[in-house]
Nucleic acid binder design. Structure first.
Lengths: 231, 231
DNA sequence: CGGTATCCGCAAAGATACTG
DNA sequence: CAGTATCTTTGCGGATACCG
């Protein structure tokens, strides 16, 4: 750890460990379950292999993740959050909630399904804990599952480990449209964009609980205000 | 804003705004009330004046703080969090709670009274809201005051704006010793290290509510574990 | 596939001098 | 006191080469 703040302040200590570029985004990627090096590269467009490698070692040294061997043909590894690492994900959720008040990002920014799901969990953190139907989502071809155990909302990539009480299948665009209430579950199922396997009322409740807040569009007023700020 | 993550992910968006070095520590400094440029320099040892200036402009542009003119002799300005900026302080509190599990910092690290107070508020965030006695703390020569309004705990530097129900006077070392339970209110008052102006039971309750969790000492085991992590 | 190592160009951060 | 200007150093981004 070069470039520390050298402060006896717990916030500064946290940032000594987590504050470097990419670090918290690596934790975000691992927040849906273990991932391999190449998975992480895909979820962190722009990071170099050398930098990812360095960050992973740093996080391993600080007991935030562990490197586990995967069985199967050939040698393969996955990176998995420790308990201390898992404890960071609610903080990322708070950052997500805070960022919901920021102007909407440019349309050319990268997008991933898992980021939308991460935001859905974060913004619904409190209410979502009550949603105790194991729900499997097939977005495009990628499976995920969610489950509120009363205290937390579990969100994982991969197929549900038990038979889900609700299964939703749609494109990423439809997921986003329904989660931001630009369309409804009824309309999306009617058009065939959303396939609900299970009770449709439960599906409606799911999207009511895990709604993503709309980013405020960049109004002329807010743009002016930002321009007005001194150079 | 150069060097953005360019991701349509709310966590990444938050880090685009807050993730640069020093940025969150500036918010921390302003979390106890408005501060002037030189105050900030003192609270951020190692930052350059150019970098502080750049960060302040950046935060002003993103509506996280405002630059307000101070009345008095000469031209003088203070920096003050906006509502959007205030909304970040609970997140810093979460980082503080998380960092409490990290190994203790080296003894030569910088220290400030306000950082300890910030940690006291953070770790007591829930319980502290119930502590509704306006409390003034004179640590060394610097006054602060705290007040739980039922929902949040207000923490500000400067003398209390109303007559406090409790006044505590001690050194920073004593504050830390009592807050980490290395000594008691009774013992500290008996030795003269702590002067309580008000009900002593209320003072005891104050430190019970706003206790700082001890950082786990760096055990030989934890050191070994960190060394064991691959280079 | 799953990384490590190296090099280059650039942008951010650190240090310090200087000015209204 | 409140910054701006300038210079040096470090970290990051990107590419590529290499290894088990």
């Amino acid at each position: 750890m070069t470039r520390t703040y050298s402060q006896k302040c717990l916030a500064a200590r946290a940032l000594d460990v987590l504050g470097e570029r990419w670090t918290l985004l690596i934790v975000r990627e691992l927040g849906l379950g273990p991932r391999r090096f190449s998975d992480l590269l895909d979820g962190l467009p722009g990071i170099g292999t050398n930098l990812l490698s360095a960050r992973l070692k740093h996080l391993e040294q600080h007991d935030i993740l562990t490197r586990v061997a995967l069985d199967g043909p050939g040698v393969s590894f996955a990176y998995q959050l420790t308990d201390r690492g898992e404890a960071i994900t609610p903080i990322l959720g708070n950052l997500v909630q805070w960022a919901a008040g920021l102007p909407a990002p440019p349309p050319d920014y990268e997008n991933r399904t898992r980021w939308a799901l991460f935001a859905m969990r974060a913004t619904a953190a409190d209410r979502g804990a009550a949603f105790d139907t194991v729900t499997e989502l097939i977005i495009g071809d990628d499976p995920f599952w969610m489950y509120g155990d009363g205290a937390h909302v579990l969100l994982r990539s991969g197929p549900a480990p038990v038979r889900p009480g609700l299964r939703l299948r749609c494109s990423q665009a439809t997921l986003h449209a329904v989660a931001t209430r630009r369309t409804t579950v009824a309309a999306a199922t009617a058009s065939g964009d959303l396939i609900v396997d299970g009770d449709i009322d439960t599906a409606t409740e799911f999207f009511a609980v895990f709604a993503i807040p709309d980013a405020p569009a960049a109004t002329e007023k807010s743009l002016k205000q930002r321009r007005r700020a001194r150079q």
